[in-house]
Design a protein around this nucleic acid. Structure first.
Length: 884
RNA sequence: GGAGGUAUAGCUCAGUUGGUCAGAGCGCACGGUUCACAUCCGUGAGGUCGCGGGUUCGAGCCCCUCUAUCUCCACCA
């Protein structure tokens, strides 16, 4: 029995995908190892969070990577796609804290060790989930190399880098204002703060002068911080206040004296011109305070409650304190007015809580020296952003970079390798706990390690080399590093891409990858960001269940420009599913028309017909273009080309054109048709495989008896032999003729059941071609017969007609013809042609066009002129004879 | 305040180096039960490529102004 007879009429992805994936995996096709005979091609995965669930962003990101990896693997590269997961310290810790809260437990209740035990258990439980979801996407990662940011090797890399940077003076510990999240209870870095515009108020408050001579009015959006005020500042140029500088104010509610100082920071003409200075809770005020030697008084604790410095407000939550303070000021008559005020408030990226700027002692990475080589790496072209415009965003950030706060008051993460001596108070940074304090010689047990952990991005910044074995000089590292492409969304350029680049420049002396392929977001059908709170997220796994992985992959990688956001539309997936089904049926057709054992050994290329050579040549062009597009990361363009070729050229034309030969057992070129069908289809499947791995594999296996797998088959190559201009012209003549006939019949409302004779009036060289195509016209254009003649004598008057390049077409329709309608139709045609002619004539009549445009373009225009003139002449004649 | 994106058919979007580039899918109209596929086939209608300038022999594509819209960064108490 033929294979095709066992194929269902409709492709069922659910049946195939699991089996195929397991086969790939068990045969070890995803594995990569250094091979001196091959060139490496490496991608490291953006490690998903262990707490993560696959979402559309992952689907897109990983599909793109898989396309590149599969393409390169087929091209003969040693293609490594290195997978892994990220411990995501703050996100994971928050989840575990939440889970514990349900049991009525807090971190402090169970202690650090027990907490970490829970965290690891969590990782074991959920860390694998996302991996299995990635597999359902068809991801061809080398799973044997699965890494985790907190596994032993990567932790070693983290410590190594920390110590190196510290020893170089690029990591320091300092007391500064940091963004503090009172909910997560940790410091966070600048980029972890998201600004949201919120409705707030401006409170205008009178601070009494100490000498009782009046008041100084200030305005604030955070009245509770006044508890920590240690001065009021005015601009030194401000005439209004010049006399007050140096005088004292009584800080209301606290009742202590604070000075009036002059500082440029205060902007003339804004607000009241006087600014309360709270060095402990505002970055600008902190700087002012430093300049003026002001006392730094912290009035809030880590949880956002007023502390003992807040006097009678001590113990109040910050917003509760705000209310009370405003009320008290009002009672004292010091509150002048309240104005509504919209302002941007920093919130915690993770939990959304309003961030409190607070002075605290944290570890920082000094960024300026690290940024410079990282900027240079992009400027020199060592790293290229695709699309290029994202390098601007990168520069913009890198050139204005602030020091990076890397310590977190969390437990889940890499512990900071710093030790403090209980004897002398000295600090030691060391890969392992020192036996003695190097400062005072105190015994090792006097040394206590910093309780804090590192920002999760500190470890992911090392990902491209830590996963390959660094700091050890491994074979993998030598072979696979630097990696080739990093694929990620633009939302993560600062968090990750930039940090990988400077970390790699610093540690490896070169950039970690050559290309950064940036993609956009997948939004909902209305263009909104998919989010949990909106509940508008689409689960890729559900889409896969319904339409298949290939359909999803197709839908999200076609029809959008690199770096642009796209909307998720179910219709798109549906169209993609239909395409998978289309090629399924095309293959089924090809197989149905094979003999049991098609013997391609006997194929004689001299027996190839015009349409054979046409499709071979078109397919050859396709191979070249798709390969070029993929090399340039123009994935969507590449995919569209394969789609158009397969559906339009291959299915709608080539298959239809060869049907007469296939259905006729005695046809002398039948084997050649079978061969070309097979050859073209296989090339197409290969070109399509990176995008739609499952269906292409399934079909490839059907076509090839002993095929191992399409994913390790050889990528098609452009063949200079396969260029057939003459045959292409011939075939296009047939195609255009068929189209024209169909058009006429449709316009004339001729039912398909009514067959009609077709008369072609054509130059000698086309006569035999058209005549020979009689069976095709019969099949494809409802022809009862075809004649091809040199001139119009003898053509019945009541014929519908059309003019194409290379032939006049006449269809005698007797009673069916409506002469007026026919004339109308031809007049429309004529007008269109006139327009074209005018355009071409105008161009060629323009002397500067003829002299300045490339010869090729001019020649093309001349050929057009000739063609159109001929067609126009024919049309005019036809119209005239109609009228008479 | 700074930077960037987008504006093309009713809808969602392509358009790779300026020269058949005015396209696709969906939708719409009309017609198709012959043996690959109705998840299909065929035919067709629909756009002065946001406005206005400029460069060029030639611009959807390059430059400038403007309008609309989105995003990122910074953030004045």
């Amino acid at each position: 029995m033929k294979k095709a007879e066992t194929m269902a009429k409709v492709y069922d992805p659910a049946k195939a995908e699991k089996r195929i994936y397991e086969n790939w995996e068990s045969r070890g096709y995803f594995k990569a190892a250094p091979d001196p005979d091959k060139k490496p091609f490496t991608i490291v995965i953006p490690p998903p969070n262990i707490t993560g669930q696959l979402h559309m962003g992952h689907a897109l990101d990983n599909t793109l990577q898989d396309i590149l990896i599969r393409f390169k693997r087929m091209q003969g590269y040693e293609a490594l796609w290195l997978p892994g997961t990220d411990h995501a310290s703050i996100a994971t810790e928050a989840k575990i804290v939440d889970a514990m809260a349900k049991e009525g437990l807090t971190k402090d209740d169970i202690g650090r060790d027990a907490f970490l035990e829970r965290a690891w258990a969590w990782k074991d439980l959920y860390g694998g989930r996302i991996i299995n979801q990635l597999k359902r996407l068809g991801s061809s990662c080398d799973w044997d190399r699965l890494r985790f940011t907190m596994d032993e090797g990567l932790s070693e890399a983290v410590t190594e880098v920390f110590v190196r940077l510290y020893e170089k003076g690029l990591i320091y510990r300092g007391e500064r204002i940091t963004n503090w999240c009172p909910h997560c209870n940790t410091s966070i870095s600048d980029i972890e703060v998201e600004y949201k515009e919120l409705d707030g108020s401006f409170w205008y408050i009178n601070y009494p002068l100490a000498d009782g001579s009046g008041y100084l009015m200030i305005a604030t959006t955070r009245p509770e911080t006044m508890l920590g005020d240690t001065a009021v500042a005015v601009n030194p140029e401000d005439e209004k206040y010049r006399a007050l500088v140096g005088k004292k104010l009584i800080l209301p509610l606290v009742n202590k004296e604070i000075p009036i100082i002059a500082d440029d920071y205060v902007e003339l003409g804004f607000g009241t011109g006087a600014v309360k200075i709270t060095p402990a809770h505002d970055p600008n005020d902190f700087e002012v305070g430093k300049r003026h030697g002001l006392e730094v008084i912290k009035v809030l604790d880590d949880r956002g409650y007023v502390n003992e410095n807040g006097g009678r407000y001590c113990g109040l939550e910050r917003y509760e304190a705000r209310k009370r303070i405003v009320k008290d000021l009002e009672e004292l008559g010091l509150l002048v007015k309240v104005e509504p005020h919209k302002h941007n408030v920093g919130t915690c990226q993770r939990c959304g809580t309003v961030v409190e700027p607070m002075v605290s002692k944290q570890w920082y990475v000094k960024m300026k020296p690290l940024a410079e080589p990282a900027i240079e790496a992009v400027r020199s072209g060592e790293v290229r952003f695709v699309p290029e415009r994202f390098s601007k965003i990168y520069y913009n950030w890198m050139e204005n970079i602030q020091d990076w706060c890397i310590s977190r008051q969390l437990w889940w993460g890499h512990r900071i390798p710093a030790y403090y001596c209980g004897e002398c108070g000295g600090t030691v940074v060391s890969k392992t706990k020192p036996e003695k304090c190097p400062h005072c010689g105190a015994d090792g047990d006097k040394l206590t390690q910093d309780p804090d952990t590192l920002d999760t991005w500190f470890s992911s910044a090392l990902w491209p080399f830590s996963t390959l074995g660094w700091p050890h000089e491994t074979e993998d590292l030598k072979y696979f590093f630097p990696t080739d492409v990093l694929v990620t969304g633009y939302d993560i350029i600062f968090f990750w891409v930039a940090r990988m680049i400077f970390s790699s420049c610093e540690q490896m002396g070169k950039a970690p990858f050559r290309h950064v392929l940036i993609h956009g977001l997948i939004r909902d059908s209305q263009g909104r960001k998919m989010s949990k709170s909106l509940g508008n997220g689409i689960d890729p796994l559900e889409v896969i269940d319904e339409y298949g992985t290939d359909a999803l992959r197709f839908a999200i990688t076609s029809g959008n420009a690199p770096g642009n956001d796209q909307r998720y539309l179910p219709e798109k997936v549906e169209a993609a599913r239909n395409f998978a089904n289309k090629i399924w049926n095309a293959t089924r057709f090809v197989l149905l028309n094979f003999d049991d054992e098609p013997d391609f050994a006997n194929v004689d290329s001299s027996r190839f017909t015009a349409e054979d050579k046409w499709i071979l040549s078109e397919c050859n062009t396709l191979v070249r273009e798709v390969t070029e597009n993929l090399e340039k990361f123009e994935l969507g363009v590449a995919l569209t080309k394969v789609y158009d070729f397969m559906w339009d050229k291959f299915c709608d034309w080539y298959i239809e054109l060869v049907k007469p030969r296939l259905f006729d057992d005695t046809d002398k070129t039948r084997t050649e048709a079978q061969y070309v069908l097979n050859d073209t289809l296989i090339k197409c499947l290969k070109l399509l495989h990176p995008f739609m791995p499952f269906v292409t594999e399934e079909l490839y296996q059907s076509l090839y008896k002993d095929a191992e797998s399409i994913m390790i088959s050889k990528w098609p190559e452009y063949d200079e032999e396969l260029v057939y201009e003459k045959e292409t012209e011939k075939t296009e003549l047939i195609i255009n003729a068929v189209r024209a006939v169909r058009n006429i019949r449709r316009e004339m409302n001729v039912p398909n059941s009514r067959k009609a004779h077709i008369i072609f009036v054509a130059p000698d060289e086309n006569i035999s071609i058209l005549k020979a195509a009689e069976p095709l016209f019969a099949r494809m254009a409802c022809a009862s017969g075809v004649s091809a003649v040199k001139d119009k004598t003898g053509i019945p008057e009541n014929a519908a007609s059309a003019v194409i390049d290379g032939a006049g077409i006449y269809i005698p329709l007797d009673e069916l013809i409506d002469l007026e309608k026919e004339a109308e139709r031809l007049t429309k045609e004529k007008e269109n042609l006139e327009k074209e002619l005018q355009r071409v004539k105008g161009k060629l009549g323009n002397e500067s066009f003829v002299s300045k445009a490339p010869q090729k373009v001019v020649d093309e225009e001349r050929a057009k002129l000739e063609k159109y003139t001929k067609m126009y002449g024919d049309l005019v004649q036809r119209l005239e004879s109609l009228k008479s």
